[in-house]
C-alpha cells in the first residue's frame, strides 16, 4: 500500500535535486535573455526627417552636396530633388563625377539618375521625398523613397 519511508525520502530528495537544477537553468536562460537585450541599441542619433533650407539656397542645374546630411540636392527651373550620397555597396560617401557619381572605396559608378553603371554596388541610389514646410523650408524624409524623376515642383 504505502512505500517504505526511505524510498519516499529518496524520491523527494531526487525531485528537489532535479528541480533545483532545472530552476537554475531556467533562471539562467531568462536572465540571459533580459541581459542580452541590453546589447540591442535603443537610442539613435539618426534623424529621419529634417529641414535643409529654402529652395533659393540651391544653385540651378547643379548637384549641391550637403555634407552633414550626406545628400545631393539637384535643382532645376521646375523643381528640386534629393538623392542619397551613401554608396549602396558598403556605405562610403560617393563623389560627384562628370556624368554621375563615383564611390572611392570600391569603385562603384552611378549615372545622374543614381542607377548603378558598374562596380560592386547592387542597388540604385535612393531618392527621397521632399516637401515644403509652412516656413518655406524644404523637408527631406529619408523614410519615404520616390522615383528619380519625381521632383518637388516650385
Amino acid at each position: 500500500m504505502q512505500e517504505p519511508l526511505h524510498t519516499q525520502g529518496h524520491s523527494r530528495r531526487d525531485f528537489l535535486r532535479r528541480f533545483s537544477v532545472w530552476a537554475a537553468i531556467g533562471a539562467g536562460v531568462l536572465a540571459s535573455i533580459s541581459l542580452l537585450r541590453q546589447f540591442i541599441p535603443r537610442l539613435t542619433q539618426y534623424q529621419r526627417r529634417f529641414k535643409i533650407g529654402r529652395v533659393n539656397n540651391f544653385p540651378v542645374n547643379t548637384f549641391t552636396y550637403l555634407s552633414d546630411r550626406k545628400l545631393f540636392v539637384y535643382r532645376d527651373h521646375q523643381g528640386i530633388r534629393a538623392v542619397s550620397a551613401i554608396c549602396t555597396h558598403l556605405g562610403c560617401v560617393i563623389e560627384k563625377s562628370d556624368d554621375g557619381f563615383l564611390c572611392p572605396c570600391h569603385g562603384s559608378c552611378y549615372n545622374d539618375q543614381g542607377e548603378v553603371l558598374s562596380g560592386a554596388a547592387t542597388k540604385d541610389l535612393p531618392w527621397f521625398e521632399l516637401r515644403k514646410d509652412v516656413d518655406g523650408q524644404i523637408v527631406v524624409d529619408l523614410g519615404r523613397l520616390v522615383l528619380p524623376e519625381e521632383k518637388l515642383y516650385l
Partner: peptide, 22 residues
C-alpha cells in the same frame, strides 16, 4: 564622416576580403 578617404583601405590583413567585397 563627410568625406571618405580615397582609396579607403582596411588594415592589411582584411585587404584580401576587401578585394573580394569589391
Amino acid at each position: 564622416p563627410d568625406f571618405a578617404e580615397n582609396p579607403a583601405k582596411s588594415p592589411w590583413y582584411f585587404l584580401g576580403i576587401q578585394e573580394l567585397v569589391s
